[in-house]
């Protein structure tokens, strides 16, 4: 909220020459691309600098970032809530596992199939759910997450029951000369970049504007001709699709699925991750991915007996210091450094 208040208080810059402003905008756009390119360069060099375990950790950061991209679309951009995002992640993970286990489908094909399955399921569940709002919607999505684990355990012949399924990982082609962990990292990176570009394209389209309108003012969006239930359902299905794609890569990377990896806590951790990372921002999912991957581990190190307590306290601290998430905090730091530099 405070972010919005800031916007209203900002004095209106009148009469700035239009040409200068246009140039500044082009410069800002170019700077964004430079930052993105630099980030990508760092990301590409990472697996050659780190030990395999760390490489694995960063691979998982990318996996979570893809899932959070979807959640960001739904929560940050369309303004709906989901406590069941982990269920769609699990659908992608199990879908991939079953395809690999039973039909020996090549790894590359499991990803689009898993994403499509999650999309279809999101559409089917979103159709009734998205007629609800607020707490009712939260409750229904939570029910989806709770429902899933017993379901996975029940159909033992397909899902492997409580024991789960163990699968082969995609092997690096000989020409790359990469080790397995490095190859998996680059696969996750490729999926993450593709997912990022896709989300960006979606949000800059007419449909993206419709989602923002629904988030900012439902009544006004409605009289403008935006069909609320249609766009909410679509956002829900897309968010499920990203989660499904992330789940698929998860299975490639881990090579093992079991029901208890996808308990309700996964959904809640993901929601916490995107809120902490920064709702509605482009860097939010990546920062959230770092949070989801590393903070539970750090909590464990701080106090072995009560990692949950430390995890909770860390969330509270971040939200207290940075109510618009880590992305918002980074933006604020950047602005104030610029101000300091300008003064000198």
């Amino acid at each position: 909220m405070s972010g919005r208040a800031e916007v209203t208080e900002k004095p209106v810059r009148a009469d700035a020459p239009g040409r200068g402003r246009a140039l500044a905008r082009i410069a800002a756009g170019r700077r964004r691309w430079i930052v993105a390119a630099a980030l990508l360069a760092v990301a590409c060099s990472l697996p050659f600098q780190l030990v395999p375990f760390r490489v694995f950790q960063f691979t998982m950061v990318l996996v979570y970032a893809v899932a959070l991209l979807g959640l960001n679309l739904l929560v940050g951009h369309a303004g709906q809530i989901s406590l069941g995002h982990g269920a769609f992640f699990a659908v992608g993970a199990y879908g991939t596992a079953i395809m690999l286990d039973r039909w020996d489908v090549p790894h590359v094909l499991t990803l689009p199939a898993a994403a499509a399955t999650a999309f279809a399921l999101g559409l089917a569940l979103g159709l009734p759910a998205m007629r609800l709002r607020g707490l009712y919607l939260a409750l229904v999505t939570l029910a989806i997450a709770i429902f899933l684990v017993p379901l996975l355990k029940r159909f033992e012949s397909v899902t492997g029951g409580s024991m789960g399924l163990t699968l082969g990982k995609p092997a690096p082609p000989a020409w790359t000369g990469l080790a397995e962990d490095q190859w998996l990292y680059f696969l996750a990176l490729a999926v993450a970049v593709a997912a990022f570009l896709l989300a960006r394209g979606l949000l800059h389209s007419r449909v993206g504007r419709a989602l923002h309108a629904v988030r900012d003012n439902e009544a006004a969006a409605e009289v403008m001709g935006v069909r609320l239930s249609f766009y909410k359902t679509l956002a829900f299905a897309w968010s499920a699709m990203f989660a499904g794609a992330a789940g698929s890569v998860y299975t490639w990377v881990i090579g093992f699925v079991s029901p208890d990896s996808f308990a309700v806590t996964l959904s809640i951790t993901l929601l916490a991750g995107i809120v902490v990372g920064g709702l509605g921002s482009f860097s939010g999912p990546l920062l959230g991915g770092l949070f989801v991957m590393f903070v539970p581990g750090i909590s464990q190190d701080v106090n072995d007996a009560a990692p949950g307590v430390i995890f909770g306290l860390l969330i509270i601290t971040v939200m207290y210091v940075a109510p618009t998430g880590l992305a918002g905090l980074a933006g604020r730091v950047a602005r104030s450094t610029k101000k300091i530099l300008r003064k000198e």
Binding site: R4, T8, H212, D216, A219, A220, A221
Partner: peptide
């Protein structure tokens, strides 16, 4: 009523 401006856009 109240204009229905989409403030962040």
């Amino acid at each position: 009523e109240g204009r229905g401006t989409f403030m962040p856009l």
